[in-house]
Write a protein that binds this DNA or RNA. Structure first.
Length: 412
RNA sequence: GUGGGUGUAGCUCAGUUGGUUAGAGCGCCAGGUUGUGGUCCUGGAUGUCGCCGGUUCGAACCCGGUCACUCACCCCA
């Protein structure tokens, strides 16, 4: 028998963590809604080809991290490693029309070695804005992310890095220039980067090897290879961000992991996360949907890691405040009272064990707002002591009025 | 996938050069006490010392393997 523990890189979310998790997701959706986004829920697994065809042959996500399996009918299926491919597929499958703003959330799966802020089943929230090619769409999409981070209390802890990958022509030109520059350094580059030189040279830019960085320091800048059109697009994105008061820093070495990105690439990084610093990242992917076989449809989007947001934000998820009922006498009567209050929509914390003090302190731990003490004396007199745990005041209420009283106070 | 660190009670951790029935604090449970926000007192339960194998008269301790966690690389949100 296997040990009773969760599979590697997966976790149980206990109530306290789950509350934070849901709060982050809900906050993200609430904010996206203000920008006109609607939620889309796509399947957690898709045909394997969807991912191999769209994410890029060179990405590790495809080549060695996917949870791929064959079902009983012999179909190759894959647990989604990210959200955009599924949303794009849904856009085509359902013949949706643009402009379209879609929000998604849910689990993603990658078989990586777990570490801080990185898990095999992790959760993302994300948005996709389809159909507009204007740089203002990029600005607005980034604004959604910025609002989210600020709302979660991360405004000060996070930095927006911005770059442009340019259009296809710009990209090819730059790739060429970069390879040309790097080739003379072949014997000095790290072995990883040597592989990347052929496979995905842009990746060398964000290599963490010190010697690579020295070499890269003198490399031509991506922004210098932009076509005039791409340059203009990027300028408009920057001026838009400035107009909205969103601070950013240019990072000409910022690269996107997945193949389908062009033009705007951005990444909000947090210092609270060790080496997994990207907390919300995305970019423009004008070629993706056409490449999948749909009509040519530009798009911009981002995804944020819920666990990473939870790790770096100190935000407190609001908690419901129950009414604590402390029956010292007739417990059946207390149970009935609690049930009536619950039917009326109030949260009630009913404890049967421990002495008065213990129950009161437990009520405080559970963030109860009121404690209703049903002592034998009081019940004999037909009253209950209602203690306001915030104000530490207390008054006696007759049992017949108790329900109305709590309903009134509990919703004020 | 590669490298480092760590695995002892629910949690945080002690545990001497290998030596009897493996400990503490906190938490938990029961009872008592104090009627009004963590009190105090008494009592109690809980461990295959991560797992498997080896060395040894004897292993929580030494060795090998394995699993898990963790940090970094790779990659990525």
């Amino acid at each position: 028998m296997t040990p009773l523990q969760p599979a590697r890189g997966t976790h149980d979310l206990l109530p306290e963590d789950a509350r934070r998790h849901r709060f982050i997701e809900d906050t993200a959706f609430r904010i996206a809604e203000r920008y006109g986004y609607g939620e889309i829920i796509t399947p957690i697994f898709e045909f394997t080809d969807l991912f191999t065809g769209t994410l890029g042959e060179t990405s590790d996500v495809v080549t060695k991290e996917m949870y791929t399996f064959t079902d009983r009918s012999g179909e190759s299926l894959t647990l989604r490693p990210e959200g955009t491919a599924g949303v794009a597929r849904a856009f085509i499958s359902n013949s949706l029309t643009t402009p379209l703003k879609l929000f998604y959330r849910g689990p993603m799966f990658r078989q990586e070695r777990p570490q801080k802020g990185r898990f095999r089943q992790f959760h993302q929230v994300g948005i996709e804005f389809l159909g507009l090619e204007t740089p203002l769409a990029d600005v607005e999409a980034i604004a959604v992310g910025w609002q989210l981070l600020r709302t979660l209390g991360l405004g000060e802890k996070v930095q927006l890095q911005l770059n442009s990958l340019g259009d296809l022509d710009s990209r090819l030109a730059y790739r060429h220039a970069l390879v040309e520059y790097l080739s003379p350094f072949r014997d000095k580059l790290s072995t990883e980067s040597l592989v990347r030189l052929d496979k995905n040279p842009l990746r060398i830019l964000d290599s963490k090897s010190a010697t690579d960085q020295e070499i890269v320091a003198g490399a031509p800048l991506m922004t210098d290879s932009l076509t005039p059109e791409a340059r203009d697009f990027f300028d408009q994105v920057m001026s838009g961000l400035t107009a909205l008061g969103i601070p950013f820093t240019l990072n000409p070495k910022l690269v996107r992991g997945l193949d389908y990105y062009c033009h705007t690439a951005f990444e909000f990084t947090s210092t609270a996360l060790g080496s997994q610093s990207a907390v919300l990242a995305g970019g423009r992917y004008d070629g993706l949907i056409a490449r999948m076989g749909g009509a040519r449809t530009p798009g911009i989007g981002w995804a944020a890691g819920v666990e990473r947001l939870a790790l770096s934000s100190g935000c407190e998820a609001p908690q419901s405040r129950p009414i604590a009922i402390i029956p010292m006498g007739d417990q059946v009567a207390a149970l009935a009272l609690a049930d009536r209050l619950r039917t009326a929509g109030l949260a009630v914390d009913l404890g049967f064990s421990g002495n008065m003090k213990k129950r009161l302190s437990r009520a405080a731990e559970h963030k109860a707002r009121f404690a209703v003490i049903l002592g034998e004396d009081e019940m004999a007199r037909g009253v209950a002591a209602v203690r306001d745990l915030d104000a530490t005041t207390q008054e006696e209420i007759t049992l017949s009025q108790l329900e109305a009283y709590l309903l009134h106070r509990g919703t004020e």
